[in-house]
Amino acid sequence: MTAPAEGIAALPVVRKQRNPVLQSEAARGLGLISPTFIYAVIFLVIPIVLVIANSFWTQNYLTIDRTFTLENYRIALTDPIYRDLLMRSLWISLLVSFFTVVLAYPIAFFISFHGGKHKGLWLFLITIPFWTSYLLRVMSWKVILGYNGVLNATLMGLGITNGPSDAFLYNTSAVVITLTHAWATFAVLPIFVSLEKIDRSLVEAATDLGDGPLRRFLRITLPLSAPGIISATLIVMIPTVGDFVTPRLVGGKDGVMIANAIQAQFGKAANWPLGAALSVTTMAVVTAMAASVVLVIRMAARRIR
């Protein structure tokens, strides 16, 4: 047994020596990540750097004055219009993420705990409405909420209201309703995944120790699905703050959000630096809000004992 093994060890190393720099672990690692890294630099880092740079410059009609100034931030933070718009955007996105998660949770719960063999089919069915264009879905909400819309006709038909009401469309709640519907699936999926990860014997153990269905949900299932709730909230909240299509279509005067103002600065108003300052401010505020929401949910999950 030993003799042939020694023979192999005695053979000279014939593999060709390549450049040791290319052979190194670090070089190979960098080589592997470089496509994604270059992609991220071109499409993520450069645009953000440009926006941040712009926010410190000044627009002089058609040219841009590249001397450093904080004037844009002064306007963005103190002008009551922008402050109100930002506050309203945050409020709307908070409401939207709250309602989306509250509505998505039971769906995810049902699929995960009672979906049986058809979990995949249920998830597939949930994505079907999202095969149509977002614009079409917004338009159909206009049909439902409008002055001569489905909702008004139903209320009048049931004798609850006497005449059509214009209270449903072109305001904040119309924006909240439309966005909640639009983001539902994106919230169902992360919650579903976190519910799937819960070991069912934990739920049985809670039952065994005396908990009825409600108590074991509150003490075991809900806190253990907190990571799903957090990601669902973030997935909905962060893009919602920056949405400008929905408020434009169903928001009316009361539904204008910060993104509409930013769009105006980059478009009609032609004040890129101010638009950039508004963008950066919004990003910072959204980050802060997202972080605090995460903290609040984590703390709430820890409080349930």
């Binding site: 070991d199 014997s201 934990l202 049985e204 153990a205 809670a206 039952t207 065994d208 120790l209 005396g210 908990d211 009825g212 003490r219 075991i220 806190p223 253990l224 999950a301 820890r302 004992r305």
Partner: peptide
């Protein structure tokens, strides 16, 4: 139902609640 029976179980996987510490598990 299981939650009203005078029996308790030690599960094969132990089913220790991962979000609670030892004391909280025991006094669950």
């Amino acid at each position: 139902p299981a939650n009203r029976r005078p029996t308790n179980m030690v599960f094969q996987s132990y089913a220790i609640f991962p979000h609670l510490n030892v004391e909280q598990n025991v006094c669950y």
